Computed example of a mutant assay.
Amino acid sequence: MARVTAVSSNGTYSFSKPNRPSVMLLAGLGVEGDVHAGETIKHQFRMTYEPDLPNLRQVHLIHEELFDELAAKGFAVAAGALGENITTRGVDLLGLPTGALLHLGEEAVVEVTGLRNPCAKINGFQQGLLQEVFELDATTGEFVFKSGIMGVVRHGGNVRPGDVIEVELPVGPHRPLERV
């Protein structure tokens, strides 16, 4: 069964986000009190040249299985360390199509907008980690980004560790996730 394993937020810009007992998702904004919440772009770099574009990165989700994969390669990464708001287990986040709805807990709904584009700051957290969160697909020659997905809040609600995640796929044809 797919579950939330941790929730994290930070009111100031920093690479990692501390874990919380719960977070409140606000429709059209993101995580209450989080620096990335808002209707328009809040990504520090992108605000300098695209400040008025819609914020498609209100909520960052990472699958905890990535941490297991990284641990097998000698990296110690815990929930919130890569700046995500919601850490999950048991759902193939990277395999979801654009527009999938994630029902989190009793009320919250996040619409998946795309893939997180990992940045060089990951190497500042742990040297060599950046090359582990993306890989080259041998079949297609395309990069596969593994550092989570982004979404927007469609229905607000409180989200806690242990909450069940239900996936609602959009009507087909499905569009694969792209970087946002």
Results as ranks from 00 to 15, higher is better:
Met1Arg: 07
Met1Leu: 11
Ala2His: 02
Ala2Ser: 15
Ala2Trp: 00
Arg3Lys: 14
Arg3Asn: 00
Val4Ile: 15
Thr5Ile: 13
Thr5Gln: 00
Ala6His: 14
Ala6Ser: 15
Val7Thr: 08
Asn10Glu: 05
Gly11Leu: 06
Tyr13Ser: 03
Phe15Val: 09
Lys17Ala: 02
Pro18Asn: 13
Arg20Cys: 11
Arg20Val: 01
Pro21Thr: 09
Pro21Asn: 10
Met24Val: 11
Leu25Pro: 05
Ala27Trp: 13
Leu29Phe: 15
Gly30Glu: 11
Val31Ala: 09
Glu32Val: 10
Val35Trp: 06
His36Glu: 09
Ala37Val: 08
Gly38Leu: 13
Glu39Asn: 00
Glu39Gly: 12
Thr40Asn: 12
Ile41His: 03
Ile41Ser: 02
Lys42Asn: 04
Lys42Asp: 02
Lys42Trp: 11
Gln44Met: 14
Thr48Ile: 01
Tyr49Met: 10
Glu50Gln: 12
Pro51Phe: 09
Pro51Ala: 04
Pro51Trp: 07
Asp52Phe: 07
Asp52Glu: 11
Leu53Ser: 10
Leu53Asp: 01
Pro54Glu: 03
Pro54Ser: 09
Leu56Arg: 05
Arg57Phe: 04
Gln58Val: 02
Ile62Met: 11
Glu65Asn: 05
Glu69Trp: 02
Glu69Ile: 11
Ala71Leu: 10
Ala71Arg: 12
Ala72Tyr: 07
Ala72Lys: 15
Lys73Trp: 04
Gly74Tyr: 12
Ala78Ser: 14
Gly80Leu: 13
Ala81Arg: 12
Leu82His: 02
Gly83Trp: 01
Glu84His: 06
Asn85Asp: 12
Ile86Ala: 06
Ile86Trp: 05
Thr88Val: 08
Thr88Arg: 03
Gly90Tyr: 07
Val91Gly: 02
Asp92Glu: 13
Gly99Asp: 11
Leu102Gly: 07
Leu102His: 04
His103Glu: 15
His103Ser: 10
Gly105Ala: 11
Gly105Ser: 09
Gly105Thr: 07
Glu107Arg: 15
Glu107Gln: 15
Val109Trp: 08
Val109His: 06
Val110His: 03
Val110Arg: 04
Glu111Trp: 00
Thr113Leu: 01
Gly114Ala: 04
Leu115Thr: 07
Arg116Tyr: 08
Asn117Leu: 05
Asn117Met: 07
Pro118Gly: 05
Pro118Phe: 04
Cys119Pro: 03
Ala120Gly: 08
Ile122Arg: 01
Gly124Ser: 12
Phe125Cys: 04
Gln127Ser: 15
Gln127Ile: 10
Gly128His: 05
Leu129Trp: 13
Leu129Lys: 05
Leu130Met: 14
Leu130Glu: 12
Gln131Thr: 13
Glu132Ile: 03
Val133Ile: 14
Val133Lys: 02
Val133Gly: 02
Phe134Asp: 01
Phe134Cys: 10
Glu135Gly: 14
Glu135Cys: 08
Leu136Met: 12
Ala138Ser: 13
Ala138Val: 10
Ala138Glu: 10
Ala138Gln: 12
Thr139Glu: 14
Thr140Pro: 10
Thr140Val: 11
Glu142Ala: 10
Lys146Leu: 14
Lys146Asn: 02
Gly148Thr: 09
Ile149Trp: 02
Met150Leu: 15
Met150Thr: 01
Val152Met: 03
Arg154His: 03
Arg154Asn: 01
Arg154Phe: 07
Gly156Pro: 09
Asn158His: 03
Val159Leu: 00
Arg160His: 05
Asp163Glu: 03
Ile165Asn: 01
Glu166Ser: 09
Val167Asp: 04
Val167Phe: 07
Pro170Ile: 11
Gly172His: 06
Arg175Val: 12
Leu177Asn: 08
Leu177Cys: 04
Arg179Tyr: 00
